[in-house]
Simulated assay, not measured.
Amino acid sequence: MAAKKGISGNHIYIDKRNRYIHYDNFTKKGYLIDRQSEDKYRLYQNRFIFIVCLMVLCIDFFSSWFTFFGFFAILFVLIELVFRYTFLLKLRTVATIEKATKYTMVKEVAESKDKKKVLLKIGLYSAFGVLIIVNAYLSDFDTSTFILCLGLSFFAFYYVYINIVAYFKIK
């Protein structure tokens, strides 16, 4: 039987009725994420990772670093504005949030109780983190592109860390 796929993260809390609440640090409000909004929330939740991946893929298409970083800065601001002013405003606000009910990615992975799947994720994220650096080195990328690949590798090893911690919490 497959485990229920939920939402987790640094800004996710679960209330007494087992509903997911996104707490926005800027507005200091909680937003109720209903079942219809979960997939869209997951997409917005990974927006930073998508931008970094897109940066690595598109690095050769820009003539200067100024246009490269300018384009992605504008893209970042636009995606953030869409998240805050279209997606979050469509969600219902919640008056009170209990900070003790935080639902982290470690808890979500540990609740899956599938040790083989967690080990597979650890192996795949580790391989990706190493291979992105090896590719950058063998392709003889310049320093700034190499640093961008290091950032992507950092994300991969962050997920390795989360999965290792969750692996030891699985009962």
Rank of each mutant, 00 (worst) to 15 (best):
K171W: 09
F157R: 07
A156R: 02
I12T: 03
K99L: 15
Y85R: 12
S126A: 03
A100P: 09
F50H: 14
L148Y: 09
I74C: 03
C58R: 09
L120Y: 14
V77S: 01
R84A: 07
E108V: 00
G6M: 07
Y20I: 01
S63W: 12
Y103D: 00
I59S: 09
K16V: 09
A166M: 00
D24T: 06
K90W: 13
F71Q: 00
K99I: 14
K171V: 06
N10T: 08
R17E: 13
Y137H: 13
K107Q: 12
F48N: 12
G151A: 12
K115S: 08
I132P: 05
Y158W: 15
N163F: 13
R19Y: 15
T27V: 05
I147K: 06
Y20G: 02
W65K: 00
D114L: 07
V56R: 05
N25A: 12
W65E: 01
T145N: 09
L78W: 00
V56K: 04
F146G: 07
Y159C: 07
D24Q: 06
T145P: 01
T96C: 10
R84F: 13
F50E: 05
D142K: 08
I59H: 13
D24W: 14
I164F: 14
Y137P: 10
G6Y: 06
D24F: 14
I49C: 04
L91Q: 08
G123H: 10
F71E: 00
S126I: 03
D140L: 11
T27Q: 07
I79V: 10
F26A: 10
L54T: 03
V130D: 06
D39Y: 14
N163I: 06
R19D: 11
G123V: 08
E80T: 04
S63K: 15
V130R: 13
I12N: 01
V130Y: 15
Y158N: 08
Y31M: 02
Y41S: 02
R35F: 15
S126C: 05
L131H: 01
M55C: 00
Y41D: 00
Y85S: 05
A95W: 13
Y23D: 02
